Structure formats: structure tokens, C-alpha cells
Amino acid sequence: MKKKKEKNLTEHGMPEKDITSESYLQTVFRRFKKHKLGMISLIVFIILGLAALFAPVLAPYDPNEIAGSFSGAPSREFLLGTDQIGRDVLSRLLYAMRISLLVGIMATLISTVIGVVLGLIAGYFGGAADMVIMRFTDMVMSFPYILLVLVAAAIFKPGLWSIILILGFVDWPGIARLVRGNVLNLRETNFIKGNLVAGMSLKHILFSEILPNTVAPILVYATSVLALSMLDEAALSFLGMGVQPPTASLGNMLNGAESLTVLTKQPWLWVPPGLLIVILVMAINFIGDALRDAVDPNSK
């Protein structure tokens, strides 16, 4: 008995944690922590997200205030310099990150809700509903993605909520196909058939039995949609079809760096927003990779 007790102690004299008693979320978090890039990316994303959330507190100036000289170089007063009309670049960068994250998160939520609902209906009911939804999904996916976004942006008035709605209503097909595939597999399982025999309501089966077993792949896919939405917002704003000045976004901050003079002699106008886009997108992608490994039951 004594030997058995000693065997269950760690090298520091503490009892080993019994992983068989872990909940699913605890198991996922334990696996996620083993992914070093994922953890670093999560910390970076949280820091940047908090900086964007508290932009009114952290920003040294109002983002639209003309506070210094035109195109002023970085200095003690203006850490990242000023733009072409004398606005503080650091202040605008914090507010721009806020806009980009808002667009990405809201567009992802809209596309996820649409994709999940359509995928559940198509996968569970099958038949005519499945055929209509999937043919419509195929039609949307047959159009070049960026062309579809550009056409929609050209039709509707440019602005923050226009971009959110456009991206939200364009990004759903991938999620719908993913959910449909999972539902097709789940509806043939014994526990779903048992619920049907027991007379459980359709609402209970779809949202209490099937959907929770589909959440993991949805979350993983949603991270890629989030990164893509932020890139699309930056591209549309750079082209003048997204968030409109004077509201700052990472895309329209890059819009002012089109001339050769700015590119070569005023890097503080385009390097910070460009670098921030790269960091945010890479962090989200690494988080998605770590999350995929963490929810995969075959992951070692």
C-alpha cells in the first residue's frame, strides 16, 4: 500500500492529477497549453484586444485631433509620429485596431449563426431542404470570393456596418457545409435515435444534442473566418470602399501610403498599421491551429 501511494506522487511530492476525472473543457485547455505558439498568440491577442478596448484611456490624443505638424517624424511627444494632416498615429492606431477587431468579430458571428442554422436544417432534415440549401451554398461559393465582396461593397454605401453585413453574409457557406457534414454523421448515431424513440422535441435534439457535438469544429473554422474578415476589411478600406475617413481603420491608414515619398521617407505612416495587421492575423491563425489540435480526439 505504501509503495502504491509513493507511485502516485510527483517528483515534487505532490499527488498526480487524475486526467480521467477532467471535464472536456479542462482537457481541451490542457492540450491547448502544450501548443507554445498558440499560447503566445493568445496572450498577444488578449493584450492587443485590451489595448483596443481601452483605446479612449490609452490614446494620448483624440484620433481626429490635429495635434502636431504634418507628417511629423516619431518623437517624445508623438511616439509613432503624425500623419499627413498632423493627427497622432499612435492614437489612430489604437482606434483603428478597435474598428478592425469589431468588424472581424461581428462578421464572424453573423456568418457563423447563418451557417450553423442552414447547416443544421440541411443535415438533419435532408431531402428537398438539403438540396435547396446546398445548391444555394454551391452557387454562392462558385463566385470568386473577393469579386463577390467587391461587388457587394460597390452596391451598398461604404461604411462600418455595411462592411460588417457584407462580410457576414458572404462568409457563411464554409460553416454551413461543415455543420451539415457533422450533422449527417451525428443523426445516425444511437444516442440521437434513442432521443427520437424517447419522443424528445426537435428543438432539444438539434440544440441540446447535435449542436454541442459540433461546436469544436465550428470554433476552429470561425478563427479562420475572423482572420479573413479582418484582412478583407483592411483591403476594402485601403481601396476606399470600406470604413470611411475620418474614422480610423488599419486599411484606410495604409491608404495614405500609396506615394513613393511616403513609402521611402515616411515609414511611420505605413509600417505600424501594416505590422499590426500581420501580427493580428498570424496570432488568430496560430490560435486556430492550437485549438484544432486541442479538440482533435486523436491528438497526442
Rank of each mutant, 00 (worst) to 15 (best):
K7E: 07
L9D: 00
M14F: 06
I19R: 10
S21I: 03
Q26F: 12
R30A: 10
R31S: 02
G38M: 14
G38Y: 11
I40C: 10
S41F: 08
L42F: 04
V44G: 08
F54T: 04
A59D: 01
E65C: 08
P74M: 09
R76L: 14
L90Q: 03
Y95M: 06
L101M: 13
T108L: 07
Y124G: 05
G126F: 05
G127D: 08
M131K: 13
F136D: 02
T137L: 05
M139L: 14
S142R: 15
S142G: 12
I146Q: 12
L150S: 03
A153E: 01
F156E: 07
W161D: 04
W161L: 14
I164L: 08
I166R: 04
D171N: 15
W172H: 13
P173G: 06
N185E: 11
L186N: 11
N190K: 15
L196S: 08
V197W: 10
G199R: 15
N213M: 14
A216H: 12
I218Q: 11
Y221I: 09
A227E: 00
S229I: 03
S229N: 14
E233K: 12
G256P: 00
S259V: 06
K265E: 12
W268Y: 14
L276A: 06
V281L: 05
N285A: 04
V295G: 05
V295R: 13
P297G: 12
S299P: 07
